[in-house]
Simulated scan of single mutants.
Amino acid sequence: MSVVAPGPKVLYAEFTALPGCEETVAELLAGLADEVRREPGCIEFAPYRVSTEPSRFFVYEVYLDDDAFTAHITAPYGRVFNERLVPLIVEDGSQLTWLQPLSS
């Protein structure tokens, strides 16, 4: 049986811009970062580009708890971001990887 641990929700998202779309994706992501960082439950939202592969984007995210993450994914600006992002990237959407601490 799997039990969801209380506490911060930590993940990273990755995606690859299509050729010629790199700067548009970077601008969209910068705008999203401004919005997400204002969310009360957002602890960290840190977007990066992979230095050796500028079409690859990586976002490290930390939310206070499940409720904060739910508020994040249901925010209207997130839906708009994803609608605009999907046609500009290789993947079908952001590829999410959930992280958990080594010790509690």
Rank of each mutant, 00 (worst) to 15 (best):
F57H: 14
C42S: 13
P40S: 00
E35F: 10
L88T: 06
L88N: 05
L18Y: 03
L28N: 01
S55V: 10
L64N: 02
R38W: 06
F69S: 04
A71V: 01
E61T: 02
A33F: 05
H72N: 09
A30N: 13
N82C: 02
Y60P: 04
F81M: 06
V62G: 01
F58V: 15
L64Q: 10
R38C: 14
A71K: 04
L18K: 15
A68P: 03
R56N: 01
E83S: 11
Y77I: 04
D67F: 03
E22C: 03
G31N: 13
V86R: 15
V59C: 09
P47T: 02
T16A: 01
E23Q: 11
L88M: 12
A26T: 08
E27S: 13
A33N: 08
A75Q: 09
Y60E: 05
A17E: 00
R79I: 00
A68M: 02
E22S: 10
N82H: 05
E23C: 01
E39Y: 10
I73G: 04
T52Q: 06
T74Y: 04
T74K: 09
E35Y: 09
G31R: 08
C21S: 15
G78M: 09
D66S: 14
S51K: 10
I43F: 05
A17S: 06
L28H: 05
